[in-house]
Amino acid sequence: MDATTKFALLAVLILGAVIACARPLGKYIADVMEGRNTFASRIGGPLERLIYRLCGTDPSREMTWSHYAIALLVFNLLGALVVYGLQRLQPWLPLNPQHLAGVSADSSFNTAVAFVTNTDWQGYSGESTMSYLTQMAGLTVQNYLSAATGLAVALVLIRGFIRHCADRVGNFWVDITRASLYLLLPLSIVLALALASQGVIQNLDSYKTATTIEKLTFDNPKTDADGSPLKDDKGNAVTEPATTQAQTLPMGPVASQESIKELGTNGGGFFNANSAHPYENPTTLSNVLEIAAIFLIPFALTYAFGRMVGDSRQGWALMVAMLVLFAVLAATAFVSEQTGNPLFAQNGVDSQATSMQSGGNMEGKETRFGIAASALFAAATTATSCGAVNGMHDSMMPMGGFVPLFLMQLGELTPGGVGTGIYTILLFAILGVFIAGLMIGRTPEYLGKKIEAREMKLASIFILTTPMVVLVGTAIGVVTLGGQAGVSNPGAHGFSEILYAFTSAGNNNGSAFAGLSANTEFYNLGLGIAMWLGRFWPIVAALAIGGSLASKKRIPVTEGTMPTHGPLFITLLIGTILLIGVLNYVPALALGPVVEHFMLFQGR
């Protein structure tokens, strides 16, 4: 079987399974989130009511969109404070068998914002930085709550289309409780067990030491009497050669974090190498399960949306648009990686795929996954807001690296993160019908709601906030010494590293290009601010649009209403998404991966 067939089969297998699950899971999501009497609510109902009683919440009391937004913001701030405190205080807290030190203030700030915003950007190395308590009570808890927050925002926007002359959009506390209790928790338990069956570890043991067969010689950093690293006149670490046969094997409660990391489209790995680490993603099957888990809820939400608005064709139309964009870009990544580096052939190196070798570009990829599964994972993790990686994106070919960048820059809506994907594509749908309305001279409407000036102003805030955060952040990174200091490659590739970091932070993805030294005060602060603004400003705009639509009358469908479930609308939607993405980012992309691609193929 050739490599292209392998890639196509893998993609069809995973996407086919996910789409087959979309209908039953989407129906389940719609039922539990709308509070219908289901099997799950009969089992979990007493616990749900107990949570409301303990928190003093009246589930029947709904909120205006602004009250909903403030509840969401304050709740997330409190979450950030807990994650920040756990990191700073971990030397004095339990479940720290390695006696890891407290995390620095700037890194704690960055990580706290990263995990409450569903970004899960990691400037640190998990196994040498975070205690088990911080991983479980801080990071994993936020993996659930940030995904539930995204789903809650999507529900408000969907209710905007359903409700008629209403000033209330739902109850934030009810929405996040139901999302966590009935959706994220049960699915995570099932996936954690499946991953554990493949070899993903789950324990609270201290780290193990293994004796290697071969001796390893390495440069050991020298330290002074206080244990601080010694540096020479140029600021480089002073090292001495050392030899060892001891290898430390990190342990931890990985499976329970790994499952919600994928299902909640969070992406923050227990270990530094993320899903490239054999304890996080040991086998071909675990890799397939992880890719499927990333897609599962976002695709199911398209069906849930269609069901909630009373016309499932509306949901299928959004899903088709997502699939078309994803398929084209994922295939581009695969072709680029399988083609490999043209300079290898010039130097007499055979990089063709044969029965004896994978060929193409294997740098930065795990041999147990190969090119097809690595390219598909890279596309899946950036088409959603996941950000987990099973290979190093920095080592991809220029156009291979272009794909994850562009998928994030499109707004992560193919199919996007939990909740974020559906509300982002709905915003583009609103923009699409507005553009179509301008072309044919009719008042634009979508799902029975008129789209007017207020919605368009709010949609503009939604769509323009992230590009502003990304492009201004990248510009500051490029021109300041603090930004330049983290770059490990000169020229176009170095520019891509900075652009990728701010794209990942601003779009709440969290994957890294891996060539950037980001655990510095500059990047911890800059990316932290980018993650917060890129998450919560669009959320506020989406909630406001939900509130605005809910307050409007539903107008009946007439012969003059543009159908929003057919090929014409799907084409319009894809065109709108591409147009906005291209207009925002082409100049920046031209300076990074595009120029690098042309330089490479000119032999430079």
Binding site: S66, A69, I70, L73, V74, L77, A80, L81, Y84, R88, S104, A105, D106, S108, F109, A112, V113, R454, K457, L458, I461, L525, G528, I529, W532, L533, F536, W537, V540, A541, A544, G547, S548
Partner: peptide, 30 residues
């Protein structure tokens, strides 16, 4: 250092709540 980063976090929250109130105000003017 903690005070600096916690203040930045608070400022980010206040700026975002400011956006909520600002948008709400536009709604009243409509």
């Amino acid at each position: 250092m903690d005070a600096i980063y916690l203040t930045i976090l608070l400022m980010l929250l206040l700026a975002t709540i400011g956006l909520v109130l600002g948008i709400d105000r536009i709604g009243e003017d409509r």
